[in-house]
Design a protein around this nucleic acid. Structure first.
Lengths: 336, 336
DNA sequence: CCGGTTATACTCAAAACGAGTATTATGGAG
DNA sequence: CTCCATAATACTCGTTTTGAGTATAACCGG
């Protein structure tokens, strides 16, 4: 038991890409017992049974001019990936997010960033792997209708969780309706974090070394019992991923970030599938087309894609000028 | 010259309140030479000539369960203010944001938070003071039309700045149009940070110990010469304030945060003035009323306010239920 | 040349929005 | 007591935007 009770700062990257209509996130394997602040560079030797984590790297306090540049630097050095669009996501600093803190380890503060790329090359380092985002958050993929998981597995557990809340039953009921779209409340794709947090409080998803629920509701540290709610991640990285997905879903509606994930030219259906992949819902095809076209977000190239399986589709490209014309050029989600 | 080249973590608070139609931010006076990481608690003795700063406090790595609770704790302890709504804003970690770093001081990372309150009580500590947000960002207040400052003072300087850009003139021109709404581009109230950053690069606003512009364009560390662009703040706190204002302007459009700043009941004109104060633009009265009323954001109380100066106005209150009904219940800005 | 598949064009009613005019209720000045 | 400045509130109206379609076109494999 060390007595270094200082504060340590790390950087986390949620690197997102699309492979056709599959939204991917770059993950690494970490061996059992890796401390949270250990940079990814130290993970190259990892191969044994461990868990999945987000890439993590250090800040060089005298070398890195900004946090973002530090992130770009070690992502590039470690995976060869040149990130295009990068934005700060959130800074995570809860106590015990690194379980080693319980044994006297330092408080670990992680500034997490989102990076979007369309280079889907497998990263050089062997520990890196692209995985579907919905591997970790399966209830978020509503492209084939409301996931049965919600009404079959989550809803009954939610009902019990609401009952367990002594004084704040109505508060819990309200939170649950709002987050999962029960009753009057509509489903809001952007409330990813709210859903995750409720599942965490219910004990249906766990974070390494911590446990959800009120004290006593669920013994800490053990894997959750109950329905299959996707793959776990090390530390609070699944929470970070949930935060990132919520942010991305919100952002595609008012900034043209979706094009960071697209190739130079694309058909309108490819673009629609990309938006759907991240938003987690199906969209109305004709109205989607109208929105991006009349909204000035894309322009035709005259060239055609002949491999559509049906009538050839025109290839479009992103119209950069739209940034100068409209205040909030997002893609809009014409629901189905 | 010390050799402690570690990393230090601090917390910053942008605490916003409204006094009628004046948007205020809580500031403290710091004496010359205060290090960035020194918590506000240490500032009680400040009274000499110094500069204005945002409240800053420490994270107790073994005592504070979360960053947000740490912030609430020291804001309460130091100013007596009980913050209602709090959200994380951004984490600032650029090198040399604390000038002491040049003399071997540690790299200072600050997690900044926004706090909204309607308690406009003067804070207990004598160093605290409410100041108008537009004292620091005067070009952001467009309530009486486009600020003359922009076309009279900023635009000519921008033109020179664009010319100075050797290779990236068109890039600079584009950034300037986009940020300040020249030519085809509309004014976008939310681009507060983009405007600030251009002014910083131009050398029209400065940050203690740093200088804007490309190397050689402007000697570092000196106060900027040129038109009056508002009051400076210590460190990069004016940048933090700009970030906060941009975030708030964006947020009022899709979350009902404006009500965090309002009293329990209010007239629709008071609500409109509050939104205008933060958004920095005048709104169309009848359409604003239609939006908040038909949007289900408010409900009448039956009681009247007789001190309007004209016909008495009904007092309204926030309809909390709207959160359950609509996905993004913001106020909307029916421009004038 | 037929049916499956996808692209693209076009329609139509409902809702939302921008920009007003009209009317009502106060308090204060003359 | 009337007039008027000041607001509040009600209502209108043409334009866009949106939701939800139908209709038609072009390719492929058999």
């Amino acid at each position: 038991m060390t007595v270094d009770r200082g504060i340590v700062v790390g950087l986390n990257a949620v690197i997102v890409a699309l492979e056709c209509d599959r939204p991917r996130v770059l993950t690494v394997s970490v061996p059992e017992g890796t401390p949270l602040e250990g940079g990814t560079a130290a993970l190259d030797r990892a191969d044994g049974p461990g868990s999945t984590a987000l890439p993590t790297g250090p800040l060089d306090p005298t070398g890195d001019r900004t946090l973002e540049l530090a992130l770009r630097r070690w992502v590039k050095a470690w995976s060869g990936l040149d990130l295009g669009y990068v934005e700060q996501l959130y800074t995570f600093g809860d106590r015990f997010r690194d379980p080693a803190e319980r044994q006297g380890g330092p408080r670990v503060i992680s500034a997490a960033y989102i990076g979007l790329t369309h280079q889907d090359e497998p990263a050089g380092a062997s520990v890196a792997r692209w995985r579907s985002i919905y591997t970790f958050l399966p209830w978020e993929d509503g492209r084939r209708g409301r996931p049965p998981l919600i009404d079959e597995a989550i809803e009954p557990a939610l009902a019990r969780w609401v009952e367990r809340g002594q004084k704040d039953r109505s508060l819990r009921r309200e939170r649950a309706s709002l987050a999962f779209g029960f009753g009057e409340s509509p489903w809001d794709g952007e409330r990813v974090l709210e859903r995750y947090e409720i599942l965490f409080e219910m004990g249906l998803v766990s974070e390494r070394g911590r446990h959800g629920g009120n004290a006593g509701e669920q013994p800490g540290g053990r894997p959750p019992v109950g329905p299959d709610l996707g793959l776990d991640m090390a530390f609070d990285h699944r929470r970070i991923l949930a935060t990132a997905l919520g942010r991305i879903r919100a952002k595609i509606r008012y900034r043209p970030v979706i094009f960071e994930l697209m190739p130079e030219t694309f058909t309108l259906l490819q673009l629609q599938r990309a938006v759907e992949a991240l938003a987690g819902v199906r969209l109305h095809k004709q109205n989607f087309r109208r929105l991006v076209d009349k909204g000035g977000l894309v322009e035709g190239t005259g060239r055609m894609d002949l491999k559509t399986g049906g009538r050839p589709a025109e290839l479009f490209r992103f119209r950069r000028e739209v940034l100068l014309e409209r205040p909030t050029p997002g893609v809009g989600l014409p629901g189905l």
